[in-house]
């Protein structure tokens, strides 16, 4: 298994959901750090609260580069104004599944669905479109999802 060095120069977007589940912000920052190590630049797309949580958590912008509004991101995909190599979609509710389905339909790419929260298995069961699922019961403790991410990220950045 390679560490994904061949992915250098590629771009990723992290599509944040509602920040009501605490692990989201920590996992997003961790994922950005891992992508940066592989030379992949990350953009954050989220609603105002989700974006602010990320920006307040990384005030010196060690990991954050571009941050954009979620509606703008979807509109840019629909209008073919933006493209990314990887789309990581954070999902813990029905709305998250809807956003991931929309991203997959607009890009025709395999999205990486990070599924977490108390009811992660029920939420994962709603997904019928092609995607790579990274899932764990993680609400307050990010480690189960972080460990899953560590397992699959090398494969994801090398193969998608």
């Amino acid at each position: 298994m390679t560490s994904g060095q061949g992915a250098a120069g590629k771009t990723a977007v992290l599509v944040l959901g509602c920040p009501q589940v605490p692990v989201q912000t920590g996992i997003a920052l961790y994922l950005m750090s891992q992508l940066r190590k592989r030379g992949i630049s990350s953009t954050i797309a989220g609603n105002r609260a989700a974006r602010l949580l990320i920006e307040v958590s990384d005030p010196e912008r060690h990991y954050i580069s571009e941050v954009m509004d979620l509606d703008r991101y979807i509109a840019d995909l629909a209008d073919k104004k933006r493209q990314f190599d990887y789309h990581f979609v954070f999902i813990h509710n029905d709305a998250g599944v809807s956003y991931a389905a929309t991203v997959q339909a607009l890009t025709q790419k395999t999205v990486i669905a990070l599924i977490y929260g108390e009811h992660f298995q029920d939420v994962a069961g709603e997904i019928e479109f092609p995607c790579e699922k990274v899932m764990a019961k993680a609400v307050h403790n990010p480690m189960p999802l972080k460990n899953k991410l560590d397992e699959v990220l090398p494969w994801v950045v090398s193969n998608l």
Partner: peptide
């Protein structure tokens, strides 16, 4: 309609 189809100028979000 497909996801991204615009209603009142806004792309629709959803599961096909």
């Amino acid at each position: 309609v497909e996801p991204g189809f615009k209603i009142f100028e806004k792309p629709i979000i959803g599961i096909p």
